[in-house]
Amino acid sequence: MTQQPKSPKNTNVQALFDKIAPEYDRMNNIISLGAHQKWRKKLMQQMTIPAGANILDVATGTADWAIALAKESDAASQVVGLDFSSEMLAVGQKKVNLTAYAECITLVQGDAMAMAFPDNTFDIVTIGFGLRNLPDPMLGLEEMFRVLKPGGQLVILETSQPDNPLIKPFWQLYVGKVMPTFGKVFARGKYNEYKYLDETTEHFMDYMSLGKLMLTIGFQKVRISRFNLGAIAVHYGTK
Rank of each mutant, 00 (worst) to 15 (best):
K6M: 10
S7T: 14
N12H: 13
P22M: 09
E23M: 00
M27S: 01
N28R: 03
I30D: 06
G34H: 08
A35N: 06
A35E: 11
W39H: 03
T48D: 13
P50A: 06
G52P: 04
N54E: 15
L56G: 08
V58C: 11
T60M: 07
G61N: 01
G61T: 07
A66Y: 08
A68M: 11
L69V: 05
L69M: 15
E72Q: 11
A75D: 15
G81F: 04
G92L: 02
K94F: 01
V96D: 05
N97D: 15
L107F: 10
A112I: 03
F117Y: 09
I124K: 01
N133H: 03
P135R: 00
D136R: 00
P137W: 04
L139K: 13
V147H: 09
L148V: 02
K149I: 02
G152A: 07
Q153F: 02
Q153E: 12
L157S: 07
D163E: 14
N164R: 06
P169F: 09
F186M: 02
R188F: 00
G189V: 07
D198Y: 14
E202G: 03
E202K: 08
H203E: 10
M208Q: 15
F227M: 11
F227E: 12
I232V: 15
I232W: 12
G237I: 07
